[in-house]
């Protein structure tokens, strides 16, 4: 079901005279939540900024294909996930630099960047999360930090609720073990 403010945004976008206003409203409505999801995946603000911009530009381009079977948030979130995973995949392949180098860069960012505000325990948790496989990390973030219900995560990722629950519990176990080890 599409919420009323989504319908208002879509109505503005459908007319060429109000399209920019509609896009602006769409971004104002969802930018912070979508940014949060992307940032937790790519960690570095500048990377999250790039991925977020590409997410919205792709959304604008394909908005006419939005079928209103889900909310705009779910649809945008799906694009953001794809963009984030593609971004991380590109980092793996870039100039034959091993993935570990980028992982290391993200770990160091957690320790050194002024755009990180957590205490030692929170940073330790983030570092443990970074050691999970990307898709498990994604599911963990959606469930733990964003409190998204399993059925919404299922809609976004097109994965069964059972598989999501198993993945989440496995991730929690691995994170707890990782934290104990340090």
């Amino acid at each position: 079901m599409t919420p009323n403010n989504d319908l208002q945004i879509l109505s503005l976008i459908s007319s060429s005279s109000t399209r920019d206003k509609g896009f602006r409203l769409l971004m104002e409505q969802y930018q912070q939540r979508i940014y949060g999801a992307i940032r937790k995946m790519v960690i570095i603000h500048e990377d999250a900024d790039d991925v977020l911009q590409n997410t919205f530009i792709k959304a604008f381009k394909h908005i006419h294909k939005f079928n209103k079977q889900s909310t705009l948030f779910t649809w945008l979130y799906r694009i953001a996930i794809n963009e984030s995973l593609n971004f991380l995949e590109k980092k793996k392949r870039r100039f034959f630099v091993p993935l570990e180098d980028h992982d290391m860069a993200m770990m160091q960012y957690l320790d050194k960047s002024p755009l990180i505000d957590g205490d030692a325990i929170q940073k330790k948790l983030q570092k443990a999360i970074l050691k999970l496989p990307e898709k498990q990390r994604l599911i963990f973030n959606m469930r733990y930090f964003e409190d998204l219900p399993y059925n919404q995560i299922s809609e976004i990722t097109e994965t069964s609720v059972g598989a999501l629950k198993a993945s989440y519990h496995h991730a929690v176990k691995k994170i707890e073990e990782e934290i104990k080890l340090e």
Partner: peptide, 20 residues
């Protein structure tokens, strides 16, 4: 631990829609 540790530069979200 659920509290977000990720900050953004000041005014980032205000300028973002126009930038995009």
């Amino acid at each position: 631990q659920k509290h977000t540790i990720f900050k953004v530069p000041e005014g980032y979200f205000n300028e973002l829609p126009e930038k995009i």
